[in-house]
Nucleic acid binder design. Structure first.
Length: 582
DNA sequence: GCCGTTTTCGGCCCGACTGTTTTCAGTCG
């Protein structure tokens, strides 16, 4: 039994993590690839499903992808907290090999070769072996492979301890619930990157306002869920590690110093610097413990962050915006009341179904969108060139169209748009032809292959695609996967300008691993006046609510409601679509 | 290991790129 696994409480997540390990080590052993895939599929199926694993164990529920054997594994897990199969597998190979699997360029075969020949089993050992040029002696490894691996190792190390926003939210929630249970009178606040809703978090900073900090530390003496490797720092902060190895810091502050501490801890540093500069110009000096009028010993009495901003004649600036990018721009400040918010979102465009690589049926996706109160949904499965994602042949696309026409009658409360997410082919063309395009409500054009083109060629490719009169939205404009894949080279500014000129929309893909287009494009997005569509890119029902992360990022870019395509009503979006292809 | 109903065995996504080769293996999306 893996000790680390056994300690954790029984949960679907923990079981899913075990399935992932089983698949990895089976593949390492050279098991039948389809058997390996069955475990991977089971993992995906469980993650996508809302069914409780207890119900599967007791035959009360059935999930596609979970057969007799994995049902047995669930029973074993629920009874013992572990899996004999995994125990067997990890006796032959060190568990740390899983870590090597996170380094791009290293697949199972290379990992096995590295371990069998060189006993390399951790990223650190890999770095050492590369520095000693020991990989060159292995079959299939050459100088280029070594160089690429070294490059990826740097990126891997950079990402260590960094987590995506949903993980940050989950850690925060566990921390908050747990502490609140032990100490109901303590008030807790997320600060730092979490409060600024940064797509990638290097740390999670929280503040606690407690009448007696000693009680707080005492409550934390007992082992605490999600907070591992705890070290106490000075008297006022406790620092540990959360899931993904991310640094978690909880700082105790007094009620009196809270407003300034909250402001300081929230950051960003460039935002804090600018406010400090303005305070200095206005005759104040600023420190985390409080703000002083020049020459005065006693700090200015402050009850809220609003009052800090008021001292320099600014409205309260929402934390998402505090990146030192556009928030001091008078036009942005003027638009603050209209900054897009979750309640402005009227519909979800860019939704996949089981027609291509989605996990849920067309009808289930529509029903879920309706239950979320959305006024419209835009179905856009993959186009035929996306083989790997089960892209739709023309016949399948028309079959889907027919089904949608039927469903429009079953779901009168929600408008259903039928579109496609078409691959942008290397020459900038898109799938199908005009006769097909004409029959769709909208087309999202996205790059899914040939990422390695140079910047000029890639920019030309994308420009050509969006100039196709039938293309409505450019999907995930840089193709990046946060903490996993770098963006491809592209002149985004030129692309944004062109989309704006054409009166089309750019996607802000709200999948937490994409959040693409990046908020750092704020200046260009705002100045161009381009429509931004905050799309869930949902591959299952639960993916629809990812839109909230997109809203966070849109707010970071200072985008007002008027910039957001899916803040329009169903009728207005319908008209917007009608204008394309003319 | 899972699925399916032309099924209880046979099929399960596949093309492109990279780097290593000298005809292909590994990785990726």
């Amino acid at each position: 039994m893996q000790e680390e696994d056994k300690k954790k409480p029984l949960s679907k997540e923990a079981f899913v993590a075990m399935l992932e390990k089983v698949a990895f080590f089976l593949e390492l052993e050279g098991a039948d690839p389809f058997r390996v895939r069955a475990y991977e599929e089971a993992k995906r199926a469980l993650q996508a499903s809302e069914v409780d694993i207890g119900d599967i164990a007791q035959d009360k529920a059935k999930v596609k992808g979970i057969g007799k054997h994995i049902q047995e594994l669930i029973r074993e897990y629920l009874a013992t907290g572990g899996l004999g199969l995994l125990e067997q597998l990890t006796q032959k190979y060190p568990v740390s090999l899983l870590e090597l699997g996170k380094i791009p360029g290293l697949g199972i075969k290379k990992i096995k070769a590295l371990y069998d020949a060189l006993k390399v089993s951790t990223p650190e050992e890999l770095r050492y072996a590369i520095e000693e040029n020991r990989l060159l002696g292995l079959e299939g490894f050459g100088i280029k492979t070594q160089e690429t691996l070294l490059k990826h190792l740097f990126l891997y190390e950079e990402r260590l301890g960094a987590v995506l926003l949903p993980t940050g939210d989950a850690i925060w929630k566990t921390l908050q619930d747990g502490l609140q249970e032990r100490l109901p009178e303590v008030r807790l606040f997320p600060a730092g990157e979490l409060r600024r809703r940064c797509p990638v978090l290097a740390g999670i900073d929280c503040l606690a306002v407690a009448s007696d900090p000693a009680l707080l530390w005492k409550a934390l003496d007992e082992p605490f869920p999600i907070l591992n490797d705890v070290v106490k720092q000075a008297d006022e902060a406790i620092v540990g590690k959360g899931d993904g190895g991310v640094r978690v810091a909880l700082t105790s502050v007094s009620a009196r110093s809270f407003p300034t501490r909250y402001f300081f801890t929230t950051g960003s540093s460039s935002h804090v610097e600018e406010i400090t500069r303005r305070l200095g110009a206005g005759g104040y000096s600023m420190a985390p413990e409080g703000i002083h009028t020049h020459g005065e010993e006693k700090p200015v009495e402050l009850r809220s962050e609003e009052e800090i901003y008021a001292l320099v004649g600014l409205p309260w600036i929402p934390p998402e915006l505090r990146e030192g990018l556009v928030e001091f721009d008078p036009a942005v400040l003027k638009n603050l009341p209209d900054l897009v918010s979750q309640s402005d979102i009227q519909g979800a465009l860019h939704v996949h179904t089981r027609f291509s690589d989605g996990m849920d049926e067309l009808e289930a996706m529509i029903a879920h969108a309706r239950s979320l109160g959305l006024a419209y949904i835009g179905i856009s499965d993959h186009s035929k060139s996306a083989y790997y994602a089960g892209g739709l042949t023309q016949e399948k696309l028309f079959e889907q169209k027919k089904q949608i026409e039927g469903l429009r009658e079953d779901f009168p409360e929600i408008r259903i748009f039928h579109g496609i997410e078409s691959d942008i082919l290397p020459d900038g063309s898109i799938d199908y032809d005009e006769a097909v395009w004409k029959q769709l409500d909208f087309i999202i054009a996205s790059v899914h292959s040939h990422f390695q083109m140079d910047k000029t060629a890639m920019t030309e490719r994308v420009l050509k695609a969006i100039r196709n009169p039938y293309v409505t939205i450019l999907g995930h404009p840089t193709g990046r996967l946060l903490l996993a894949r770098e963006p491809y080279a592209i002149d985004l500014e030129a692309v944004i300008q062109e989309i704006a000129r054409l009166g089309k929309a750019i996607e802000l893909n709200a999948h937490p691993q994409r959040l693409d287009v990046d908020y750092r494009c704020a200046t260009t997005l705002l100045a161009s006046g381009v429509f931004v569509s905050i799309n869930p890119d949902a591959h299952q029902r639960s993916g629809l609510t990812d839109i909230r992360y997109g809203v966070d990022v849109a707010r970071k870019a200072g985008l007002p409601k008027a910039h957001i395509l899916n803040a329009l009503t169903a009728c207005e979006v319908g008209e917007f679509f009608m204008r394309q292809g003319l």
